[in-house]
Design a binder for these strands. Structure first.
Lengths: 347, 347
DNA sequence: ATGAAAGCGCTAACAA
DNA sequence: TTGTTAGCGCTTTCAT
């Protein structure tokens, strides 16, 4: 055998991943043939194809997505934008999209906009080439900006209804009305609504639905907030509710509701005896908090899956303008133990 | 004015995103100069650069990541593999990595391996060209496969210690010993360990640590399971514990522990009076379940951030073999209300 | 059915 | 400091 250096030089193979060229060479065909065999079977002789596939497997070849994207224009990834990865509400969305995306052969690019519409727009433009389409979960964009965006790229908005923007909407406005009816039937007449972020589109639509429904049912609504939609904001919210003299409260989301529960327990206020609480979303934990929360069960995972389905259809269908659609997912009230008969009014 | 068709044809601009060539042309420089000005400032005349930047801004230019990746070899994305997006434990990891990744200028590719090592390996190879590095959260891979993988691509494993594989390890084995001591000091002598998945590396190391520590402290450990690390498995686990006659149980994770709490409440077993429960991870919800759970607080988000930091260093530093390192993050016991003095033994 | 060749948008030598 | 010129790995006409 030769000296060590000789051997080393001889066996110095390129450590890089095998390319289509490698496969083609080894199979004794042109690159284009290999390409066709692998990504357009049927357009190539069965025998040749078999050989190419065999070689590809041997070499452990797998196509370079970047290169493919450059020519085909499709990258095989979809961006999922959430305004705060920290919020358990998005867990459901992330799960739902993840699962369906995987089933559809796409990758998920998870992006956190940190509650800023500026960020949202920036990131989207900066990463534009990294995804084929976008799912906007609870966008902070203005209607105008959103509509414009939907015109520029394949997009589906979750929990947001804007003209001309394909969307999946979880019908919480109807849901809060159900909650209201539940409370009214328990004798509550003074009910507080604990608002979420001022920029939240859902927040507004829920409030509007509540006000309208309340007057028809002889109940009075008190609007409180806005509050940050987090656990820790529950303390302030609870105090605010107590201050209004309302006997029940409907919170923007479960996070706030659970936070309220914690604070009320600390203050010695009994739920539901002294105050009834209704949450919204039915997030993880709503069933095992203390007391278990009466809340609106939102089909978040389903919404995520549906959004992906719609987006993929849009991508495959070439985004025919007529295909724009809006799906509405129903919500239902899950009654647990945080609501009960109205407390006697103090005189 | 001309006819409509004339106008339409004239204004028929390419609807595609502006490219570097467009910028260069409009700024009156060569493409390479534009490239340098934008991604390698300092190597170009300040005035020229200013002009180029201005034009780029006007055109709303943003580089095509795919094309860039093709030449530079870096795609600007890091894959985060979790074995089950559904598990709240990973929320922390996802959050931590997401935040740090964003800070480091990378995108997060979220991948769910669905508890299958086969999937894990496949996906990694198939998507190899779509990321620069990988963070493996609770890999199901064998030590051998993992070590091999770490040799092929930049990688950091979370909660997994394997020779030669850079990792971030959350020291729950020491943690469960703390939990054990806490229980022993409360008078417990018969303690059950509720196992997680048989394939879980952490599960084994915790059990080993417990057995060793128990004998030194005059306590007896009962091993139960394996159980699926989910809420609903808590019912079976709780019954199993009750069956051993143990006065306390340490669960593989909070999900199991909380599931046990629910089932015990349903069965009328009081916690902690009749049975003490300790969880592991301190996931979202551990503080507001009923009763609030005594658990090992694991710095998951920090682990995620740290993993990213290590991976990015590895990528930037050219993956010098000597740079391999393993970080250990401490865990501490958070005592809440699910543990208390040992119940009197029935005779 | 297969091959040759022209890019996709960008970076990185190499020249000038 | 700036321009010219090769590619990166792949898909896709256009020939053959």
């Amino acid at each position: 055998m030769g000296s060590r250096s000789e051997v080393a030089q001889q066996s110095e193979k390129p450590q890089r991943a095998p390319t289509l060229a490698n496969v083609a060479e080894r199979a004794g065909v042109a690159i284009s043939t290999a390409s066709r065999a692998l990504s357009n079977p049927g357009r190539v002789n069965a025998v040749t194809r078999g050989r190419i596939e065999k070689v590809a497997a041997e070499l452990g070849y797998s196509p370079n997505w970047q290169a493919r994207a450059l020519t085909s224009g499709k990258v095989g990834a979809i961006a999922v934008l959430v305004s705060d990865v920290t919020n358990p509400f998005y867990f459901g969305i992330i799960r739902g999209t993840q699962r369906q995306l995987k089933a559809s052969g796409y990758s998920q690019l998870l992006i956190d906009t940190e509650e800023s519409d500026q960020n949202e727009d920036d990131l989207l433009h900066r990463l534009r080439s990294s995804f084929d389409g976008v799912i906007l979960a609870a966008s902070r964009l203005s209607d105008r900006a959103l509509a414009k965006l939907a015109d520029e790229l394949p997009l589906v908005a979750v929990n947001r209804q804007t003209r001309g923007v394909p969307s999946v909407f979880i019908d919480t406005p109807s849901g809060v009305v159900q909650a209201l009816e539940h409370l009214v039937s328990l004798g509550h007449r003074d009910i507080a609504y604990v608002s979420g972020p001022a920029t939240s589109w859902s927040n507004e639509s829920r409030w509007r639905a509540l006000v309208k429904a309340a007057s028809a049912r002889g109940a009075t609504m008190h609007r409180l907030g806005p509050f940050s939609p987090r656990l820790h904001a529950g303390a302030a919210a609870a105090d605010a509710v107590l201050n209004t003299g309302a006997t029940a409260a409907i919170a923007f989301n479960d996070l706030l509701a659970i936070g309220m529960l914690q604070h009320l327990a600390a203050r010695g206020v009994r739920v539901p005896e002294q105050l009834s609480i209704v949450g919204c979303d039915d997030i993880f934990g709503a069933d095992f908090c203390n007391p278990p929360l009466t809340t609106l069960t939102a089909p978040v995972e389903q919404a995520g899956r549906l959004a992906v389905t719609m987006l993929v259809a849009q991508l495959d269908g070439g985004s025919a303008p007529g295909q724009r659609q809006a799906s509405v997912l129903p919500t239902y009230l899950t009654v647990r133990s945080s609501t009960g008969p109205a407390a006697e009014k103090e005189i």
